[in-house]
Write a protein that binds this DNA or RNA. Structure first.
Length: 561
DNA sequence: GAGTTTGAAACT
DNA sequence: CAGTTTCAAACTC
């Protein structure tokens, strides 16, 4: 196929004069930028096509035209490592010199989406000036990094370069064409904040920001510099349409890259432990939702571009398969998890610190508890008030209570309850309610409460006692008070307690895990000790066991399959 | 350093 | 807008 652009005649190469934005509008000291217009964006044609601009040179602090948007980074002027950084924009002082260059005014779509002016992107671009190697683009297309950065080629290895001062006309034309095609072509691709998030867990610097357009990687897993997000040291975002993305927070692969300890041995060693864990784990965490996934290719392993990726994919497939077969409850409890499974299992690699503790059964138990308590409470209140038709009530609540009780019974059966008799009695009573519309005896209710409280807090938990008192009080009320409010309070209090426990447990596990990994960072003989899933469980479990927190320990003991 | 892979840009 | 081609950087050997 013929080149899309005929190569121009031989042009002097390597004209290394840089753009001089400090001489903007030298011949017209009155030039001033029009005030920023909210809409529509600038035409972004070369300035030569803009209406006459005015530059207020007398207002201290006011930015010259190129910096009309305070929060906006002008790629022409600011790009770490770029060849040209205008002091005018970095230090908004009146411009005394006017330019001979005509450059596009780039207006951000959203001020907040753009990097702050004069705020350096964290490693989003190389510190050292890049030298392009263009051969066919004359350095007048965005293929050329120099051109895309808005700078002249300087010391590059390009061929037939037109991105220089001697070809300014052609260059400006190219700028115009490029901007016409994409008004944001010269905007920074990475919307970044000045903050840098130091992920202590992964010991990796991470820029808070995202790619404006998002990447579209298919084979690199977004873990190679082919990926613009990875190259900019940012996580893929919802803007991305990548496939099999591994560039998300908590990604094992990504973490391994930052740890530089990622190798096949680690993967294979970690497989068994991970599979074992996943069997009883609901600690998956979804990150960004990938737009597309090559499901077929993923599961056939075709996506793996290299051996590492292949191994990883197999590992992930295996763990995912095992997890899927271990429990289908996850589909019920976390709807997004379905998407994760369908769209790409790699997203499920992140393992929550609660993975060992919070399991689908726990959630189901809790839900069952809520349902039962809610209906029992409602029933008790309603009966006390005598305002609800008994038959209607039976019809409405019978099935659901029975279902809840049955569910509870099933979950109890599955986990070998500590006090089987108590639980069975409680569940039987619940079934009785459903079947015979008979209220629970206070004794049974107490048992239920006690048993359910034990599920999450343990017998000695003060929370459990308070909760029990509360529910008892609720059940003993005459129903004339705010029944629904009490019902709600009951449930919410319980939920809050559970969440608090989980937070505490998670904090403890997290602390233990990372403190333990700090102690063994140099153990290259067992790399998994730091990054491996199996070691995480081991370390954190041991740590947890050392904490004298009854409820925490109880949780772990009670819900271990 | 040559060849290959990759994904953005350009084009249809 | 989707598919294809071009391009140059990233990567591999």
């Amino acid at each position: 196929m013929e080149p899309r652009e005929t190569m121009s005649d031989s042009v002097p190469r390597k004209l290394v004069r840089q753009l001089d934005f400090t001489v903007v509008y030298r011949d017209n000291p009155h030039l001033k930028l029009p005030p920023p217009s909210p809409s529509p964006p600038h035409s972004l044609l070369p300035l030569s096509s803009h209406p006459p601009l005015q530059l207020n040179l007398q207002t201290p602090g006011q930015r010259p035209w190129l910096c009309s948007e305070p929060q906006e980074q002008q790629p022409w002027l600011h790009s770490p490592g770029s060849k040209l950084v205008s002091p005018v924009c970095q230090f908004p002082q009146p411009v005394q010199k006017l330019p001979v260059k005509v450059l596009p005014v780039v207006k951000s779509e959203s001020p907040t989406s753009q990097p702050r002016f004069n705020v350096e992107l964290k490693d989003t671009t190389p510190k050292k000036q890049k030298q392009c190697n263009c051969k066919n683009s004359r350095c007048l297309k965005l293929y050329c990094e120099c051109f895309a950065a808005g700078i002249y080629c300087d010391g590059c290895n390009c061929v037939n370069c037109h991105n220089n001062v001697d070809n300014e006309a052609a260059r400006q034309e190219a700028v115009g064409i490029t901007l016409e095609r994409n008004p944001n072509a010269f905007r920074p691709k990475i919307a970044s904040s000045p903050q840098e998030q130091r992920n202590s867990k992964e010991s990796e610097a991470q820029v808070i920001g995202k790619h404006n357009k998002g990447c579209h990687c298919k084979k690199s897993g977004c873990l190679k510099k082919y990926c613009e997000c990875f190259q900019a040291n940012i996580l893929c975002s919802e803007n991305c349409k990548c496939m099999d993305c591994k560039n998300f927070e908590g990604s094992t692969e990504r973490r391994a890259i930052f740890h530089r300890e990622y190798n096949l041995v680690h993967i294979e060693q970690g497989t068994n432990a991970a599979v074992t864990e996943v069997l009883g784990s609901s600690g998956y965490r979804n990150h960004i939702t990938p737009k597309r996934r090559k499901i077929q290719e993923t599961f056939s392993g075709k996506l793996a571009a290299d051996q590492t990726a292949n191994t990883t994919a197999q590992y992930l497939q295996e763990t995912d398969r095992m997890a899927s077969s271990s429990s289908n409850l996850s589909y019920s409890f976390v709807s997004d998890h379905v998407n994760t499974r369908i769209s790409g299992f790699s997203r499920s690699m992140y393992r929550s610190v609660l993975a060992d503790v919070l399991q689908p059964q726990n959630v189901k138990n809790l839900c069952s508890l809520f349902v039962i308590l809610s209906r029992v409470s409602a029933k008790t209140d309603a009966e006390a008030e005598g305002k609800i038709d008994r038959q209607t009530k039976a019809g409405n609540s019978k099935a659901s209570v029975a279902s809840s009780a049955k569910s509870l019974q099933q979950t109890k059966d599955g986990r070998q309850p500590v006090c089987v008799d108590h639980v069975n009695k409680a569940v039987a009573d619940a079934v009785d309610i459903a079947n015979y519309n008979r209220p629970l005896s206070p004794e049974t209710l107490a048992l239920m409460c006690d048993e359910q409280a034990n599920m999450f807090f343990g017998n000695t938990s003060a929370d459990g006692a308070a909760y029990q008192n509360m529910i008892q009080k609720s059940l003993n009320s005459d129903g004339s008070s705010d029944a629904y409010g009490e019902q709600e309070r009951l449930i919410m209090t319980k939920l809050l307690d559970v969440l608090r426990e989980l937070v505490t447990l998670g904090s403890i596990k997290e602390t233990c895990y990372y403190s333990s990994t700090k102690k063994e960072p140099a153990d290259h003989g067992n790399i998994g000790a730091e990054t491996g899933v199996g070691s995480e469980k081991r370390n954190s479990s041991n740590c947890i066991a050392n904490y004298p927190i009854p409820s925490v320990t109880k949780i772990s003991q009670t819900f271990m399959p």
